[in-house]
């Protein structure tokens, strides 16, 4: 999936929770991604964050630790 699109989707989620305190917002982003994103999308997002992609919302970066990695298939 295109990294730009993935980043845009993640940033949109972060913005929707942007009114919450930082730690809550990151947790909410992680929970949303865990609930609604299939494992390959989550893996790509985690790669993106790990690779230090620019333009990611802080809450997305902070969510990384709580985003469930894909199980080995």
């Amino acid at each position: 999936m295109s990294p730009e699109k993935l980043a845009r989707m993640a940033n949109q989620i972060a913005a929707a929770f942007g009114h919450r305190p930082d730690d809550e917002a990151a947790a909410a982003v992680a929970a949303h991604v865990n609930d609604f994103w299939d494992p390959r999308m989550r893996a790509e997002l985690l790669e993106l964050i790990a690779g230090g992609a620019s333009g990611l919302h802080p809450a997305v970066r902070d969510a990384a630790a709580a985003i469930r990695p894909a199980a080995a298939d």
Binding site: M1, S2, K5, D35, F36, W37, D38, P39, R40, M41, A70, A71
Partner: peptide
């Protein structure tokens, strides 16, 4: 137990071959 792809995600995943 993992959520699957949503319709727009399926289309995106089709373009990257998965």
């Amino acid at each position: 137990a993992e959520p699957g792809l949503r319709l727009p995600n399926m289309l995106d995943a089709a373009l990257d071959g998965s």
